[in-house]
Design a protein around this nucleic acid. Sequence first.
RNA 1: GGAGGGGUGGCAGAGCGGCCGAAUGCGCCAGUCUUGAAAACUGGAGACCUCGCAAGGGGUCCGCGAGUUCAAAUCUCGCCCCCUCCGCCA
Length: 446
Amino acid sequence: MTNPYPDVRFHRFQEQITMYDLRYLRDNLDALRDQLGPRGTDVPWDSLRGLIEQRRSLTSQVEQLRSELKKGSDEVARLKREKQPADAAMAAMKAVGERIKAIEDELRGVEEPLTDLNLRIPNLPHASVPDGKDASSNVEARRWGTPPALTAPAKSHWDLGEALGILDFDRASKIAGARFAVMTGAGARLERALINYMLDLHTTQHGYREVLPPLLVNRASMTATGQLPKFEEDLFRLRDEDYFLIPTAEVPVTNLHRDEIIAETALPVRYTAYTPCFRREAGSYGKDTRGLIRLHQFNKVELVAFVKPEQSHEELERLTGHAETILQGLGLHYRVVTLCAGDMGFSAAKTYDIEVWLPSQNQYREISSCSNFEGFQARRGGIRYKGAAGKKDAKTEFVHTLNGSGLAVGRTLVAILENYQQPDGSVTIPAVLRPYMGGLELIRKE
RNA sequence: GGAGGGGUGGCAGAGCGGCCGAAUGCGCCAGUCUUGAAAACUGGAGACCUCGCAAGGGGUCCGCGAGUUCAAAUCUCGCCCCCUCCGCCA
């Protein structure tokens, strides 16, 4: 038997990774099912209930026997020390040992499917999240700025970029395939300028510590943040080793503190990270096939926070604001949308999407997604905090984790090309980026 | 990739079949002393599962897993990670 979640502190009964705490699950199964609503429809609730009960009964049997075995073995030790015959006691304990082994095998057979099911239950939406099963029930929270006043019909970013000689999709598909892009010249530099602008702002103005993490991670990390076990088909995986390409920096950065106990005084902990992100985009055939909107590889600057539970919803507002600051600095019109329960990701308790205005599409498109995961990832990953050591009231509790794009870099470049396009096809560079572009103010055909 | 060494509590580090959830030191918390602090002294403190309204009981955890044994931190096997040397390499 192989443990499907190797270093995800699993198995050995009591060491169960507590995605949902089993006692909580047992006591609240019906309530949880009701509150999850459409999010919980593919959870087999009845088998779950059965497995929990079986586990409970088997665990208690094992513990009783183990207690007996312990006492018996001490008795054997005592007899031997006193040079008395111990054969009978040893034989009795051998039988107890065999019974334990048998029940443990049975227990393993229960725990494996139980853990797997448990890891597939999505997070509970926060009370402030609107009901609804798809994007049509999302609620606009606010808008900032206005669409640009273009004097000519808006061109798409791919037309602009190809005409300017800064985006090359044909060669990208030759060297890699569909859903890849090559950026050259001022395009490549603009992408780099955006990354630096975002990182500089978050580190110097917003109090985040910069992290440059691995782009390949193990199965345990993907399980803690919630990509696994349910969404393996969305990930790129290496053929020869059990590594996955990260779909977002959220994964390595949140896992920085997996299986750790953070000092309460160190909280909140805030990180920002630039990484390429890799996604299979399985099931998105035919959507956004042109341009930079939906690629297998794209750049993103991510914001991640670890906070005390009572501060997480305040932190979500704050973190979302940090992402908005980037768009405001770039002068790009956007709106913020509160996702309804059915449109949120698996791990999120509450999510705001920031959507930037794209003139050529005449609509808002997601450029950032900011979520509070509450204790969901912390429980899966064993990320806890504790007050000063030795203090009487110091309890160890799960932190709350949050993250948000700050921002998706490629989509930001799209927004700049489209919103700052000139009638002749050139593109003005927003003032805040010019220092990062060697003073360049306008991108013209090279 | 090859050879060797190692993974023990917040850190360092002992233990190498039963009396070990684990010495000792540092760090931490509280108290005594002090105007206050330091020092000294005294005391305290791991993480988790399970049963219970509670008081409390039982159990697990010495990298992870499997095994040997009446009994495993200690013995065997597999895996992971770290260190040193060699090889390869940005």
